[in-house]
Amino acid sequence: MIAAWRILHKDLVLELRTREALSGLIVLVLLILLTFTFALNPEGASAAAPAVQWVTFIFAGLMAIQRSFLIERENGAWYGLLLCPIDRGAIFVAKMASNVIVLGGAQVVLLALLVLFLGVSVPVAPFGLLFVNVLGLIGFAALATLFAAISVRLRAREMMLPLLVLPLLVPLVICAVEASRIVMAGGTIASAGPWVRVLVTFDVIFSVAGWMVFEQLVHE
């Protein structure tokens, strides 16, 4: 656990000193969102907001998570991590946690931009919206972190990460969009119950599975 914390601390310090990941991610989120607003009919734009939000988030997020592994390639940092006398699962936990934190920052900005550009009304009970977003964020980060560890060592890495992750993400996309639709319209978490339950299951299964199989991926 301490090992995971140390790696997370390293990633966060690195991010705080350079602000590379978050600033790039926020600009990318803004650009994808702008592209959507030009493509969408302004009349129905706010109804499409949950879908726009998650598609934007996923595509920008894939880039950011890929990057979190790419920076480890510089100066052989990755081999330094692997040589540490620690459980390899801790590397997964730390990488997933730092990705959750960076993507969480981008998601807050994304939600604000949705209010600004798509005319989404600020929800009366923001906790429901926050809860759904955190659940979607964790599940996405778990799956994408696991497969980024794979794709980063393939030749066609930019293409392979979305190929690997997008089909597996389908349950998360369906449930996050539907749950967001309900809470954005002012519904409670209870009324989004079935969707939220699938999201929680998804988060638990893939966080645990990622932690367990990560060892196999970095077996060298």
């Binding site: 389908v170 349950p171 369906i174 449930c175 539907e178 079935p194 969707w195 699938v198 299951t201 998804f202 299964i205």
Partner: peptide
């Protein structure tokens, strides 16, 4: 998970 979510959908 896919089965449950597409059935809900």
């Amino acid at each position: 998970l896919i089965m449950i979510s597409v059935r809900l959908w």
